[in-house]
Amino acid sequence: MAYPRRLLPQQNFNRIAWNESLRNCYLIHFTETTDLIDPATSKLRITLVVKQTDHLRDYSNNLLGVFLVDDIFWASQDCPRSEYFRAEWDGVSEIVPPDVPAEFTRNETRGYFFLRISQCHEDVVQFQDNTFVHPVCMLLHTPTNSNFWHFSLRWFFEGRDLESWTNGIKRRMKTSAKAFIVERAFFDEPFYEQLDPAIYSR
């Protein structure tokens, strides 16, 4: 099986700026386990978020549409070009498809969950202590050299993301991000459609 070309950035593609039609779309996030649901809460197990705490600055997801649920099983391998494939696409370069299985292979043991963009983008948590911090979740298109459909969730306060803050404000933002993901994750595959190509083509 070859790595799907439809996942790769194309020279006639543009980065996707925020577009209202994205609100009807869904994100998919992979996990290293299929044991996702805490039976006591029917929500995502907190351990799956806590392990990602170092990645909350730029919480990786994929936009469902051209990217199919089955594509979540493509995993990069430890190879000379692995950093290149993980790097952000420069917006112009044509990408040589990765080799299978040397550079990408299928990892069918992965699990996954979904996020509804309308419940994520611009969601605000208002702290009522004397910091009055109000982290805002934002969806950003962050295409990589191996995946044009890579999107990130980031949390901002006063225009700065959580890693640029220190101490109490950063702590409030991180706790809110963790709680947010546990609350918003769902597990039944949603009905999804491809984004209008006019939104990302030049």
């Binding site: 419940q119 208002q126 702290f127 009522q128 109490g168 709680a179 609350e183």
Partner: peptide, 8 residues
Amino acid sequence: GRTIFAYG
């Protein structure tokens, strides 16, 4: 599913 309170 909605945040009703946040505090530190």
